[in-house]
Amino acid sequence: MQYSSPPKETDQIANRLSSPKPISATNGLQIIRPGPLNGGSTKPATHNRSEQEGKKKEDAHARIPEPSPPPPRPMTSVRSSAASLLPSIRGAAELVRQEALRRELDGCQLLAGIWCHGLTVAQLRSIRASLPPTARLLVTKNSDMAAAVAGTRWEALRPCARGMNAWLFVRSDEIPPALKPYRDFQKEWKLQLNDFTGAVYEGRLYGPDDFAKLEAMPTRAQSYQYLLGCLQMPAVNVLAVLRARQEAMAQADKPPAEAEAAAPAAAEK
């Protein structure tokens, strides 16, 4: 049996199906082209190498740890910063006070402590006003006074630096006039408990019971009078002896009659 060839129309349809026409841009459709397989690239090989080297460098830089930034400073308030500076400020203030006390001790002849517990500011002012110019009354801390007199001739007064004290600095050898104003104040206000706690004079410590000796010390004028009296006594004695001798010689030079007449007259005198 002999078959006839298919018609030409069927051949044309088969040819069309086997070789379809590419879709052109004029048909209004977007051409999608497949990309490189396995993440490949359509760029030349030289570009791929340079990119790989750049990535390697970036990876190397990324592996180097960058220096960590400094930790943030803690937040401090004004009160905390002031509290940290407070000890140094206190120490500096103590040194200033101690240095001022050392300057007061320079040229001082007597240093005495007074128990000032209960005394008012007005009373202390009245005591200061009654003191002579060579005396000064100060109220200071016992710790500052103990530190100021340490290693000096006033160190014997350190046991008296307890409680509430006012300190009397006397820059003259006129001791009784410097102590008398406070004694008068004490008697006026009847403050028997607010007595002297101690004093140092010429390196010696005087207790509260020894102040009678300091108050009975002669003043400078009295000392000068005593010295002048001591100097005058021998001269007066010498003058008396010379006068008696001169009178005796004058009587020896007179005649016997005059001497007899002078003798009853001298007896009557």
Rank of each mutant, 00 (worst) to 15 (best):
L105C: 07
K43D: 12
S5H: 15
V149Q: 04
D210N: 12
T46S: 14
A146N: 09
I23H: 07
R16E: 12
K141S: 04
A45N: 01
V96M: 11
M164V: 09
G203T: 11
Q109S: 07
L137Y: 12
A235K: 15
A62H: 04
Y224R: 11
V170A: 02
R97M: 15
P22H: 10
E51F: 05
R204T: 09
L227V: 12
E188W: 01
L231I: 10
W167D: 05
E58P: 00
I13G: 01
R220Y: 06
K21G: 08
W189P: 00
L205Q: 05
E104S: 10
T197Y: 03
A146Y: 03
N194Q: 14
G40T: 04
S68W: 04
L157V: 11
S68K: 08
P208L: 00
A216T: 02
D184E: 15
L86P: 00
P70F: 01
P67K: 07
A147F: 02
S130H: 01
Q109E: 09
G151R: 10
M217W: 02
S19M: 04
S68Q: 09
P256R: 05
S5G: 15
Y3I: 13
M249K: 12
P218A: 11
S4T: 15
D173H: 06
L191P: 04
M233L: 11
L191W: 00
Q246G: 01
L138T: 12
P234T: 00
E66V: 08
M217L: 13
S5C: 15
A45F: 10
